[in-house]
């Protein structure tokens, strides 16, 4: 059983910002449920006879075999130790980290290899949170699953890694892919933004480097946006963070999974629709990249996709007094 001290130290208790987000998210979905009771009843009823349309795509990689004696980092230091859903000492993680060049490559080279693996090989699928081992066996997961794999790989290789999470609004093409069902639409309308997204961050050469492992190149091509690189933030490319919500955490906190599980249980057809829509998006993007070539596509789109945004500041102003 997880010790109380571990819960506190590793940040399993949601920080204030996360608590506020969880409360806002729960209230919003609660409101949607209460004000749409008859629709929700129908959804629950339908879920019993529901035939899924989504077929999980095959894993994009062979999982390397774990062998006794494979090297890994067993430090208990912050950002290197195991945390919730993210065990860097799982055999699958150690085997993959070794295959990607752990302890042979420089930290930067390894973090980049882990980034490329997670970004290109893991496919987005909406499903409740589970362990990194499961994600690696499946080859699919939400952005939080994917970040966890990235964080676990880095930690296994002795590179400090953490989560960067925030609430966001997304570009229209992504909204069209995710908001494919009235329930999701009502939820996102009730909140005014999407509750949570994130990136991984690896501590390389004395600084934290952001890694947008969530979207595969195909999905970015389908949306007409650049393919984010190692060190490039999704904020300003395809997301806008709601200011004040950015959190940098050692662990995913408790409570995140409850909401996903609830939606999954009550409205599996909704989740199914989103997952089908994601696969369609991937197919669309694949064609674009085959036609243009990834490098050409990325070079061209970077010239035109959007104007540069100033950085939003929340610097304290002396003249504003909070009583």
């Amino acid at each position: 059983m997880t010790k109380l001290r571990e819960i506190k130290e590793r940040g399993y208790i949601p920080p204030k910002t996360m608590r506020n987000l969880l409360i806002a998210g729960s209230l919003a979905i609660g409101k949607v449920f209460i004000t749409n009771i008859s629709d929700i009843r129908k959804l629950t009823k339908n879920s019993q006879n529901f035939k899924p349309q989504y077929v999980r795509p095959p894993r994009r990689y062979e999982l390397p075999k774990y062998r006794e004696g494979m090297k890994y980092c067993d430090s208990d230091e912050k950002y290197l130790r195991p945390t919730l859903y993210c065990n860097p000492r799982a055999p699958e993680v150690i085997a993959l980290a070794n295959e990607l060049g752990a302890f042979k490559k420089s930290d930067r080279e390894f973090a980049e290899a882990a980034f490329e693996f997670c970004k290109r090989k893991l496919t987005l699928e909406m499903l409740p949170l589970d362990s990194v081992e499961n994600t690696l066996r499946r080859g699919t997961g939400t952005c939080l699953h994917e970040i966890s794999v990235f964080v676990a790989l880095c930690r296994a290789a002795g590179i400090k890694a953490r989560y960067k999470l925030y609430s966001l609004t997304v570009i229209e093409a992504w909204e069209d892919t995710l908001v494919v069902d009235p329930l999701i639409k009502k939820w996102s309308d009730a909140m005014g933004y999407f509750m949570l997204h994130g990136e991984g961050e690896a501590y390389v050469d004395g600084k934290w480097v952001v890694c947008d492992v969530g979207p595969t190149p195909e999905r970015q091509a389908a949306s007409g946006i650049p393919i984010t690189r190692f060190g490039e933030d999704s904020i300003g490319v395809w997301t806008s963070a709601i200011p004040g919500t950015i959190m940098r955490l050692e662990s995913l906190p408790y409570g995140l999974n409850a909401m996903m599980k609830l939606v999954y249980k009550i409205a599996p057809a909704t989740v199914d629709k989103v997952n089908v829509s994601i696969l369609n998006m991937i197919e669309k993007g694949k064609k674009i990249l085959e036609d243009k070539g990834e490098e050409n596509y990325d070079r061209e789109i970077r010239k035109t996709y959007k104007p540069k945004f100033p950085e939003t500041m929340l610097k304290k102003r002396q003249e504003i007094v909070f009583e």
Binding site: P243, T312, L314, R317, I320
Partner: peptide, 8 residues
């Protein structure tokens, strides 16, 4: 934070 944002 909204007030601070406006101030910025």
């Amino acid at each position: 934070d909204f007030a601070t944002w406006l101030g910025n």
